[in-house]
Amino acid sequence: MLKEQLLAVLPDLDPASVVPSASMRSLGADSMDRMDVVVGTVEALGIDAALHRFGDAANLGELTDLILEAVPA
């Protein structure tokens, strides 16, 4: 889902570059792009959590972990 949102926001991105160790910043996403990716992902997954808990992720792997923790059971 995260990858899908990222590719929707940055359609020119090479899907093979979207790996856990990459950060959205290193992939060329600016701050507004990153906001759209995070908000789009949590809304698509039905997560009703404060957004700031996703603000400290250093890379896509960490962001994925934080999102998985917040997915409703």
Partner: peptide, 12 residues
Amino acid sequence: INVDLSIMSYID
């Protein structure tokens, strides 16, 4: 500044 945290907190 932590830009991502700031933007998320702004929206929250």
